[in-house]
Nucleic acid binder design. Structure first.
Lengths: 226, 226
DNA sequence: ATATCGCATTTGCTATAGCAAACAACAAGG
DNA sequence: CCTTGTTGTTTGCTATAGCAAATGCGATAT
């Protein structure tokens, strides 16, 4: 019985808690849960056809990641992001994702950069067709793939958490039409810098990318969007 | 009925989940839970005289904060910190706590700095008497008070999470005697810089402080402590 | 019309129960 | 002595039940 050495280890199928968590996470970053929305665990459980227990666990997990908050009564809800807090999140993202992209530039192979180029194509297509949801979704994939390349798991986890905190507000306020920044998309500069093995330039491109997006959201927040 | 306006709002007493969470958190940073230790939720519940549910919730919360991990079977355990990951955590702490102390220096009043001085006295006392647990505990209070002064809640939360990830390993390996760095304690330089309203100097002092501690742990990890 | 009281409902929190998979220990066989 | 099979135990996961506090609503009184 040794033909088995070629077999991959069986994947333990994920728990219900995990499934609910992923579903909620996707809803948060995908803009299907708006700031202010309340999430009553029993109600959600009924909708998802599971018992309240795994739903409650998933909600508490999101609370511990600051993606949700509990009101005075203990009911989970999507927090409204005030401008100062949004700015703080963006400052941290600039620093941390900047670091990550510099590191990724040192480590990335030609193939890695090519893959990133493919991912950016999705973003570009969304921009052309004015599909905000697609832009956000593909942009997220691009950034997370980049984070992966940096081989900094602790940092990556922090950025994911920041992403999740800002996600609902960004989804609510982002409109791709508005972001017609002159010149090439910062992602293109970033990819060029990576191909040229220039970590500092890559970092600067990342910073421009984040600040360009960030400025749009800040403007909307100032108009009273939060 | 307006005599009530002077009353503080009644504090909703914390849930059992919260209590268990705090207890475990303290055990992790206080060195009462060593890397490798397994935490079986039913057993723990029996020891704490509560039902398994809140214990399970507290454990899952710590898992989501990367303070604990789940093994293949789903049992929570205190992860062993490999050197690269420890280094990554320290790099992030240097950046983030450095940022925080620079900001705190801009915002802190004379009274704030005096309070920090008091907190450092606890650290100094622990050093004099060779009480490792006291040094770690008071050092934590000092750093968190500093974070509070920076008014950067998102950053503070991230640092707390990093602290928790490194806590068990630090507690395991830290010995105050070893850390007889020549010259004044970096905290003293830091406090002087804050009093002088010099954010850059404060940041540098923080970096020296973290790297001095960090070097001790790294040395112990290299000797095979993890 | 407004305020107040009371009751039914909602809802988070904790405890308990049952299941299934993994594990451990021990017995039987080679 | 080592392997194999069996059986009892451990343990995470999910569902369910009951409690208590908060809430909401309607009735009643002023």
């Amino acid at each position: 019985m040794d033909g088995g050495t070629a077999l991959a280890p069986v994947e333990r199928e994920e728990s219900l808690t995990e499934k609910v968590y992923r579903s909620l996470r996707g809803a948060l970053t995908g803009g299907r849960l708006a700031p202010g929305q309340r999430l009553v665990h029993r109600t959600l459980a009924a909708e998802l056809n599971v018992s309240p227990t795994p739903v409650r666990e998933a909600l508490l997990r999101l609370v511990s990641e600051a993606a949700l908050e509990l009101d005075a009564r203990g009911i989970a809800w999507v927090p409204r992001l005030e401008l100062p807090r949004y700015r703080e999140i963006m400052e941290l993202r600039v620093e941390l994702e900047g670091r990550a992209v510099a590191r990724a530039t040192e480590l990335a192979t030609f193939t890695d950069v090519a893959r990133l180029r493919d991912l950016h194509a999705g973003v570009a297509e969304g921009r052309r067709t004015g599909n905000a949801a697609q832009v956000l979704r593909e942009n997220e994939r691009f950034h997370f793939a980049l984070l992966e390349l940096a081989r900094m798991p602790v940092l990556a986890r922090v950025v994911e958490s920041l992403w999740l905190q800002a996600g609902p507000t960004i989804s609510l306020l982002f409109r791709p039409g508005t972001s017609a920044v002159p010149g090439a998309h910062p992602h293109m500069d970033l990819l060029a810098a990576m191909a040229a093995r220039d970590p500092a330039a890559a970092r600067q491109a990342m910073e421009r990318d984040l600040r360009a997006h960030g400025a749009l959201i800040e403007a909307a927040l100032e108009r009273g969007g939060g």
